[in-house]
Write a protein that binds this DNA or RNA. Structure first.
Length: 705
DNA sequence: TTCATTCAGTCGTAT
DNA sequence: ACGACTGAATGAACC
């Protein structure tokens, strides 16, 4: 294809994990001296070392994903007791292939040759049991899904309430008239409407979500535990109290002190202890003086607070419940988990809760508080030998988000989009000397269509006006299983991954503000392209990204797959293959039955898709593309791929969107699962090519392909 | 910015 | 089976 400077090839190829068609000589020249040798020595050691090197920089920030990947070693066995709970949801992320294999064994018809190959390949190389960290991640994703579903429910209810209000106001006079004739009916209207109506808005979808998870037995650790919880390392960030409940890390969404009650004294393993016994506390941060410094904490007991209004003491605190539990910790030298709540403005979540590690309750005493009532104070000291306190690091990392262009360290390009995007995307390079900027491609915000590809025309859309709200009347909503795939919170969040999302488009009656055009609004977050030591270019966000939020589209040249064969140096080809996309869900659960396969896609065409081993169309971002071409692969990604149809309904030509699969803190590298089937990539010699994966995830498949 | 209201599981007590 | 207990989340009301 295009002649690129050697440097460019290097950058681009590594950055995208080296897709496929590189020549063997190039491959060896660039990667092998360092890689292959070590690979032979020991794969795992290599991976770990790389992760350490890599995360040197990012560990500070990416507490959930990054890190040494080690942690899990011994604890994996313990987790088997909870296997049942998570088992049914194993068909996600890195284990998709495994799940397919299982289905086959169960007698389901193998779909395609490609599929079965993927299954076989995966079973050989994949870690059988999920790491504890992955389980936690999965649990929180489930929580987020419930949360968004319940937000949607709430939004619907509120709309209805509002509509009813309007209607009732308008028809007030009419009602009076009709009272005479329809007395009984109006009575019925008033009775059920009033209680719902008055509770107009605040319904706490977060609490609803944990209720649902309890109901379904989906709390990861329903039993309280003393000490660390598998999969939650020091520095782990939670984005709400409810999230902690979902994991079982702190089982109250409200209380500061979580403790084991008397009932635990019956258990054999706790026979020698006195209960109640505290296991975890949350420092809400409202007592500024609670925090002496990072290693020492002064904690005020519970009770006697005025629940409503000003949080003043109105009673003496009593030595009972949580206070007693903490006292017992002093006497029995039991360490408690300490979670610190931080205000984090400039983020959608508002508050972040960081796990700061185990603390010994060394001392307690009673004193008279400001209001003259007795309060209990507890002195906690951090246990030695724990990872450095993350509080400072978090602040450091948040502080590191540059406020202006002049503050950006290692800036090599102020805006790689050349003004095309609403928000500039700077590129930084603190790795190379001299620092180089990403080159060898042309930035293009929107997709380019190859000459021999024709997008369908004469497509009908919905007939809504302004914003689409009623899923019963909006034709686009009906295609999505009679519901909108987005909630309006935070400017539009996708509730969950779907096989395909039908958005409103140019053929619809609604306007640009329609919720069902969420993925068409361009970039919302301040992204940065940055150079990594080992993985080439990478992308991160300076803003917090809530789960389900659209991050960017994958753009490039939309072309026929067969035309790409001549383009042999290209590493940026994204196949528009629904099956492949589903493999790359990255942890989002599929809901097959919820997606009505629309009649517009004729059934024979659908069969075509299934039987085809190679998708007909692809997006080539090799020479032309947007920010998405710099996003790296990970086996445990924080983004997922979602096919979106907006201007037409041909699934083979769907747009490729990347959405946040998790709540993503600022400066965490953005990644998605490239979704390669193992042993599916062939070199020029016709032999299967392999590529090691260095994403560093605990459940890394070790191979990209 | 502050204010007021709601939210729901846990733990202990009382059946 | 019941009720006290708890302070986060949230929209409204407030300048």
């Amino acid at each position: 294809m295009v002649v690129q400077s050697p440097k460019c090839v290097q950058e681009s190829s590594i950055s995208n994990g080296e897709v496929s068609l590189r020549t063997e000589s190039e491959f060896q020249k660039r990667v092998s001296p360092r890689l292959k040798e070590k690979q032979r020595v020991e794969k795992e050691l290599l991976v770990r070392r790389r992760v350490e090197l890599l995360d040197d920089n990012e560990e500070v920030v990416a507490s959930a994903v990054g890190g040494g990947g080690g942690g899990g070693g011994g604890s994996e066995e313990k987790s088997s007791e909870k296997k049942k709970k998570t088992y049914k949801r194993r068909c996600i992320g890195g284990n998709v292939n495994q799940e397919e294999e299982k289905k086959k064994v169960n007698g389901e018809v193998a779909k395609t040759a490609e599929d079965s190959e993927a299954g076989n390949g995966a079973v050989k190389g994949v870690v059988a049991e999920k790491s504890d960290i992955a389980k936690v991640k999965e649990t929180i994703r489930l929580f987020n899904k419930y949360y968004l579903l319940l937000v949607q429910e709430e939004e619907k209810r509120c709309r209805k309430v509002e509509a009813d209000k309007k209607a009732s106001k308008v028809s007030k006079s009419k009602k009076k008239e009709s009272k005479a004739t329809k007395g009984s009916k109006s009575k019925k209207m008033v009775v059920p409407v009033l209680p719902e109506d008055t509770k107009s808005k605040a319904k706490r979808p977060d609490l609803k979500a944990i209720s649902k998870m309890m109901e379904n037995g989906e709390i990861l650790y329903p039993e309280k535990r003393i000490g660390n919880i598998p999969g939650i390392r020091v520095g782990h960030q939670f984005y709400s109290r409810a999230e902690m409940v979902a994991v079982g890390f702190h089982s109250h969404w409200l209380n500061g002190i979580d403790y084991m009650g008397q009932s635990y004294s019956k258990l054999e393993e706790h026979k020698d202890k006195t209960f109640p016994l505290a296991v975890a506390i949350v420092l809400s941060g409202m007592y500024e003086d609670d925090l002496d410094n990072a290693e020492d904490v002064l904690y005020t007991g519970q009770g006697g607070h005025d629940l409503t209004g000003n949080k003043r003491q109105i009673q003496d605190q009593k030595m009972e419940r949580g206070n007693l539990a903490l006292k017992n910790c002093v006497e029995q030298k039991i360490a408690v988990r300490v979670i610190r709540g931080h205000e984090s403005k400039s983020s959608y979540c508002g508050k972040v809760y960081t796990y700061d590690g185990l603390y010994q309750v060394v001392h307690y005493w009673a004193e008279k508080g400001i209001s003259g009532y007795t309060i209990f104070k507890y002195r906690l000291r951090r246990q030695d030998g724990q990872p450095l306190l993350t509080t400072n690091q978090v602040q450091f990392s948040y502080g590191r988000v540059p406020q202006s262009v002049s503050e950006i360290r290692g800036l090599v390009c102020e805006d790689i989009t050349g003004g095309q995007e609403d928000i500039p995307i700077p590129a930084t390079n603190l790795v190379d000397d001299p620092p180089v900027a990403p080159t060898g491609y042309k930035y293009c915000k929107s997709i380019q269509v190859a000459k021999n590809v024709k997008l369908p025309t004469n497509v009908t859309g919905c007939n809504c006006n302004g914003k689409c709200v009623d899923p019963r009347t909006c034709a686009c909503a009906r295609l999505n299983g009679s519901d909108f795939p987005y909630v309006s919170r935070d400017g539009g969040r996708l509730i969950e991954a779907k096989d395909v999302v039908f958005e409103c488009g140019p053929n619809c009656g609604c306007g640009p503000d329609c919720l069902n055009r969420t993925s068409q609004r361009g970039l919302k977050y301040r992204l940065e392209v940055f150079r990594t030591p080992k993985k080439g270019w990478a992308v991160r966000s300076w803003d917090f990204i809530p789960s389900g939020a659209p991050v960017c589209e994958y753009t490039g040249i939309l072309m026929q797959t067969e035309d790409t064969d001549s383009v042999s140096e290209n590493n940026y080809i994204f196949d528009i293959d629904c099956l492949q996309t589903m493999r790359g869900l990255g942890g989002r659960e599929r809901r097959f039955r919820d997606v009505s396969v629309p009649t517009i896609i004729s059934s024979d065409r659908h069969d075509d898709l299934r039987s085809e081993s190679v998708p007909e169309f692809c997006i080539d971002a090799g020479s032309t593309g947007n920010i998405a071409r710099f996003i790296n692969h990970s086996c445990e990604p924080n983004l997922f791929v979602q096919c979106v149809l907006s201007s037409h309904h041909d699934i083979k030509l769907a747009r490729i969107m990347l959405f946040a699969a998790d709540n993503i803190p600022p400066l965490q590298e953005l990644t998605y699962d490239y979704g390669y089937a193992l042993d599916s990539v062939y070199g020029p010699d016709g032999k299967i090519k392999q590529m090691a994966c260095y994403c560093g995830a605990p459940d890394c498949r070790k191979r990209l392909f």
